[in-house]
Design a protein around this nucleic acid. Structure first.
Lengths: 335, 335
DNA sequence: CTGAAAGCGCTTACAG
DNA sequence: CTGAAAGCGCTTACAG
């Protein structure tokens, strides 16, 4: 990092603190025979000077840096595909990838640094200002993949053009002659969901197609939510003839509800998903969906994380990759 | 590990090799000014004594050991679920999990040890005697999850009761009155596939139901293979009325082929999958399948790997967890 | 609770 | 290509 600067040694700290090297050594090794005030002062200087104990120096020396990837909750199809992309880039660049569930205890960020992690990738995770501060203090760069929050210059993130995707999906259904189109989306607070919904609304508005309040639903990005959202829409007196969904899982749940009611896809109901995970390709009928380049997004996140770990600047704190409509067999002309 | 034994130092090696500490230091640090023969002799001694350079000692010291999980090829639904189980146990036990693609270069096993890995979990991977020898030499314990080879006492592995699963799936179809039942399986060399197929054959034989040669197919564990295998079976003059498949992906491919030919599931064709990945739950109709406790298998693999890393003995080199038939809506009585 | 002193493991500039 | 010697960073038993 700073090839010319000598590494901070215990002697430096001892001099700065006005104590002996032996005392500093005791603090570093967590021995008990040090006065609390002395310990506090030395600890502070240790941190200021960025002293790294010998056992932890492998992190600096390592030819292949280690990046931690944290997932909120379960590894789903989406996150597995993101991980595949992260692994692609890691293989290319000789980085190691540690996976874990997001659990942010007290010494969270500092522990990650102590364990040799050089950067953190959070997949579709919630984070607070406190988390960001902890990462700053620990000097650990963060890249958020598919952020739930609005892009913010303090946070590096990688996303997809969700608005454009929602627009394209809805225009596809309109082009097939549908006018009564519903939207069954994910969590109302997730920006990716909001962008998809606004893309939907924008297309409907441009086509002067009305959107009754009951046609737009939010919930979770799950199969269960699709089951329920589908039931709610199909129970309406005037149900939609087509539905755009927040992701593929929701679409499959909705299709299952339609099937149990004897509706055929796409003859009786057109459905468009989002993501193009392998669920979409393997659905029966294969699902028309908006492809998110999830794997590529994972690769970009890893590359960005590595650059930040090396102290490089990145061109933009937020990157969006293009979405694309993939037409398969779950959509058909409106009768 | 050996709290009483002093760690091997350069001095020990120097004495054994009959050279100076300085020379040994040069070998360890890969300097060029050492005679080839001297280098070779020292290297050999270094390995015999298990010398670990200071930068790599963190692996021994680490409170949370690191386990490497290697995947052959892409992260699919199956491997993602196994990884989820591995992460469950790792979180409980405070271990770190590094994921990578299996790539076995020259210094493969030794590099893993140098990078601080304490054990290796291979997910559905092929391995050769050469690989096993390399791991032995490096002292790196291996656990194979869902082995492709026959369980062998040299290799620790975790699997599922595939034979029983194949038997249960076929008995279910027989109980529904089917007699013409086909099997579209995975790679012929994979023992898990063989066991499923033999379970199928055993059930058919017990029921005195004939199995024409054309009714049994092998291929890949993929959607594509299901597409093709399904076409081959349905093209027969006397096609089966029910098909048991090697995994859920094959089942979905087969269902898609049936759909394009206007066959309804389960009215015209009953299909049973294997694995019970989330693909099965989200299929339309939801898939009757043999549940493999993949997640639990992952947890067991991690626990076994950690015990081996700590030098503990395990009760059995091969563990099989129970499979279970999950009846959903892709199977119905034979008409 | 502190530090002078001895010592350990390792590295390196340099003489041969 | 080798090693004696100086020296670095750190730890620890022990005196105060």
């Amino acid at each position: 990092m700073r090839p010319d600067a000598r590494r901070t040694t215990l002697a430096t700290i001892a001099q700065a603190a006005g104590v002996s090297v032996a005392t500093v050594s005791k603090v570093v090794n967590e021995r008990s025979d040090v006065a609390p005030q002395t310990r506090a002062r030395v600890l502070e200087l240790l941190h200021q000077h960025g002293y790294i104990a010998p056992v932890f120096r492998h992190a600096e020396v390592a030819t292949n840096p280690t990046i931690e990837v944290q997932f909120d909750g379960d590894l789903k199809t989406y996150s597995a595909e993101a991980l595949a992309g992260i692994m692609d880039a890691a293989t290319d660049l000789g980085a190691s990838v540690v996976v874990s569930k997001a659990s942010r205890t007290t010494h969270w960020a500092r522990d990650l640094v102590a364990a040799g992690r050089r950067a953190l990738i959070a997949v579709t995770s919630v984070y607070t200002t406190a988390h960001l501060n902890a990462l700053d203090r620990a000097g650990l760069p963060l890249v958020v993949l598919d952020p739930l929050h609005l892009p913010h210059s303090r946070v590096n993130s990688v996303g997809a053009t969700n608005f454009a995707g929602g627009l394209a999906a809805t225009q596809h259904l309109l082009a097939l002659g549908h006018r009564r189109i519903g939207y069954v989306g994910g969590p109302a607070i997730a920006v990716c969901n909001q962008a998809r919904m606004h893309g939907f609304r924008a297309a409907m508005e441009a086509a002067s197609a009305p959107v009754p309040a009951a046609y737009v639903r939010s919930g979770e990005f799950t199969y269960q939510a699709g089951l329920h959202g589908g039931a709610a829409l199909l129970d309406l007196e005037e149900p939609p003839t087509a539905v755009f969904t927040g992701n593929d899982e929701i679409a499959l749940g909705l299709i299952e509800t339609a099937r149990t009611r004897g509706l055929r896809i796409p003859e009786d109901l057109s459905v468009v998903g989002f993501d193009d995970t392998l669920l979409a390709r393997m659905a029966s009928p294969p699902l028309t969906t908006v492809r998110q380049p999830i794997r590529e997004m994972g690769s970009v996140a890893l590359r960005t994380a590595l650059r930040l770990a090396n102290g490089e600047k990145v061109e933009s704190y937020h990157i969006e990759l293009a979405t694309e409509l993939v037409t398969r067999e779950s959509t058909a002309p409106c009768r």
